[in-house]
Design a protein around this nucleic acid. Sequence first.
DNA 1: GCAATAGTGTCTTTGAGACAGTATTGA
DNA 2: TCAATACTGTCTCAAAGACACTATTGC
Lengths: 236, 236
Amino acid sequence: MTCYIIPPMDAPEETYPKPIVSVDLTIFGLTEVGLEVLLMQRGAEPFANTWALPGGFIHVGEDSDLESAARRVLYGKTGVETPYLEQLRTIGNAARDPRGWSLSIAYFALISADNVRLRQGTNATDVAWRPVDEAAALAFDHMEILRSALTRLRNKVEYSTLPVHLLPVRFTLGELQSVYERILGRRLDKSAFRKRIAEADFVVPVAGEMRRASNRPAQIYRVRKGHKTIFFNRTI
Amino acid sequence: MTCYIIPPMDAPEETYPKPIVSVDLTIFGLTEVGLEVLLMQRGAEPFANTWALPGGFIHVGEDSDLESAARRVLYGKTGVETPYLEQLRTIGNAARDPRGWSLSIAYFALISADNVRLRQGTNATDVAWRPVDEAAALAFDHMEILRSALTRLRNKVEYSTLPVHLLPVRFTLGELQSVYERILGRRLDKSAFRKRIAEADFVVPVAGEMRRASNRPAQIYRVRKGHKTIFFNRTI
DNA sequence: GCAATAGTGTCTTTGAGACAGTATTGA
DNA sequence: TCAATACTGTCTCAAAGACACTATTGC
């Protein structure tokens, strides 16, 4: 039994019971299969044995801020330290969690799937990549969160440099174009694509390094140091 | 003294103290002065007598969801029922509130300033419109939230139909263009502007109604029923 | 040589922006 | 008549998109 004593001086003007607060992550990765999302199977009630987005409670003593909490969850499940992480939205109502009025701050992350070592955390019996359209029923309202994240990703892909974060550190322009095409589900014109990338000026060639195959070798690029996501004023 | 007993069965797997949760609103209105934001002067500690964004705690028993909580705050301060309301972001850390680890779900609202009847709520000694650039020091990190909201508004104005919500129900195209110009701080070409508005097809003329002055009368428009904000693929 | 992909150049067509015109009122 | 603003039409120039061409490797 836990009992929190709220001191009267520091208490809110009127004291209300607080909602439950958790941080949930939609972690996208690009594998041979296509765009996939990292899911975990819940070990404990509610929704035991159901697949869910990785998440957890805020550790008031440990997490200095919200993003730290999200990064802690991310590192715990993937072992990855610095991927692209963005706040998606906060969803909260009385019905989403049988334990009571509950709040979820949803984040979405993009990672290069090859760097990941999947880990099983406490209360999770399994962790796995699942194709984004494999619309399995997820715990809580996580399916709705996943759909929001997917919408946001597809929108941003249309007019930003965001998809680089799905690639390893070094990549070719052909690989970059392929990422855009796989997420958008349509072919892009190579010439127009390269014009956009050149204008945005966010990747730099790695001198001397080429990707070799049984064709003309391709220049290898990396993201320019200190790159922030760039938004085009037109569609890619 | 308040003591919450958390039953062991329904408790989180590991039980952590919960953060403080509030909902704060950046409410924009367009007055003769220009773009203004609705502020209230706090009546109670912390930050007593300091200006702050209107906000409040979630009422677990009363609010069915987050947006309801935001609308309750909005109605309480302005008497306005259905303005444009959008979730901005959630900010949370250990330092922003002296009472402890605190979370603020920030919303931003656009209202037609003429419909508003300002009200003083509990714990507020004053409620007033303030120009957005009058960078008074605000309570908590509300200045940062206000800046976020302003950035979001200016960005969206560039390529969306969002500014209609700052106008009364009936307006002329000249008035609409003026709203865009006042927020963006630059003149727009009338011809190009009207082309955009016509393409977006989100306003309809009110048959027969004209705004009269000592010049050619202007057609009065209203927003098309069921209008959702439309995003242009280019700048306005 | 051939297959395959890298990388570049050019042409056409679209449409955004600039600007100037006409329309219609009150005074 | 003039002043003022509503509303529309046209021209120009930039750039997006389509497409084709050349380059360079392994086999």
